[in-house]
Amino acid sequence: MIEVRPAQHRGIARFDWLFSRHTFSFGNYYDPKQSGFSDLLVINEDIVQAGKGFDTHRHRDMEIFTYVIDGALEHKDSMGTGSIIEVGDVQLMTAGTGVAHSEFNHSPTELVHFLQIWLVPNKKSVQPRYQQRHFSRAYKQGQLRLLMSPDGDAEALAVYQDVRVYAGCFGDGEQAQLTLADDRYAYVHVVRGSLTVNGTALNAGDGARIRNESQIDLQQGHNAEVLVFDLRPQEQPGR
């Protein structure tokens, strides 16, 4: 079963320096029917003006990852990490016992466009950690590539949760399948372009909750980029 979350139904936050769309309840946007899915708590699509960004603020006990769509994001944190996150980079920050960080548009002239995604961890009060890895478009073209997993196997980043996150890019004639184990859920988020998921058409910004399916079929891509989350079979985060 596929339940589509249309892009135009997402919450909106608008400031002079930020335009953000919220797939799930976040900040001043609250919808009791959109309080996350399985261990996915937040999917925010942010566009930040040149030279602007999020001042230093704190998190704890959350797995937070950033996926840059266009531009570059400058990261600093209380672990001493300073990095530039560019297109193709995946940044994963384990907040654990507590970490303070800031995220700013690295460019003085161009916008930065990115996703920030929060996963509820299965371990609390762990040592904070920072990971960053580059997954080029060519590497993701025509197939799903594993970005993160509990064990950090292959080229994946290690995440404190029973979740596997994949990314792929699909053009004309390209397709991919992902087999789901019994009693698993999945969530698909279309980063850009359009494609079909098990025959259902999705466009940029659309998402889909997937239940009781043994396989995810991605087809009919048009300049498509997609994230796929293989998740525990539960409706709400933190259960």
Rank of each mutant, 00 (worst) to 15 (best):
F15T: 12
W17S: 11
W17Y: 13
L18C: 08
F19E: 13
F19K: 12
S20R: 12
S20V: 04
S25I: 10
F26E: 01
F26G: 03
N28A: 13
Y29S: 08
Y30F: 14
Y30I: 11
Y30V: 13
D31R: 13
P32G: 09
K33S: 14
Q34F: 10
Q34T: 06
G36C: 04
G36F: 02
G36A: 05
F37Q: 03
S38D: 04
D39A: 15
L40M: 15
L41K: 15
L41S: 14
V42L: 14
V42S: 01
I43G: 06
I47F: 10
I47D: 09
I47L: 14
V48F: 05
Q49K: 14
G51R: 01
G51W: 01
K52N: 12
G53F: 00
F54A: 02
F54I: 01
H57K: 02
H57T: 03
R60L: 14
R60Q: 14
R60C: 11
R60S: 15
D61L: 01
D61P: 02
D61F: 00
M62C: 06
M62N: 03
E63M: 03
I64L: 11
I64S: 03
F65Q: 01
F65W: 13
F65S: 01
F65L: 13
F65R: 01
V68F: 04
V68W: 03
I69G: 07
G71K: 06
G71S: 08
G71V: 10
S78F: 09
S83N: 12
S83V: 02
I84L: 14
E86I: 07
E86V: 08
E86T: 15
E86H: 02
E86L: 01
V87P: 10
V87E: 15
G88K: 01
G88C: 01
G88R: 00
Q91W: 00
T97I: 11
T97C: 06
T97Y: 06
G98W: 05
G98Q: 07
V99R: 07
H101W: 09
S102E: 14
N105Y: 05
S107D: 12
S107V: 12
P108F: 09
V112N: 02
H113V: 07
H113P: 09
H113W: 09
F114Y: 10
F114A: 02
L115H: 15
I117S: 08
L119P: 05
V120H: 07
P121W: 09
N122F: 08
K124C: 04
S125V: 09
Q127T: 14
Q131D: 02
Q132D: 00
R133L: 00
R133P: 04
R133Q: 11
S136P: 03
R137N: 11
G142Q: 09
L144K: 12
L146Y: 11
L147V: 09
M148A: 14
M148P: 06
P150K: 09
D151V: 08
D151C: 08
G152M: 03
G152R: 01
D153E: 15
D153K: 15
A154T: 15
E155Y: 15
L157P: 08
L157A: 03
V159T: 06
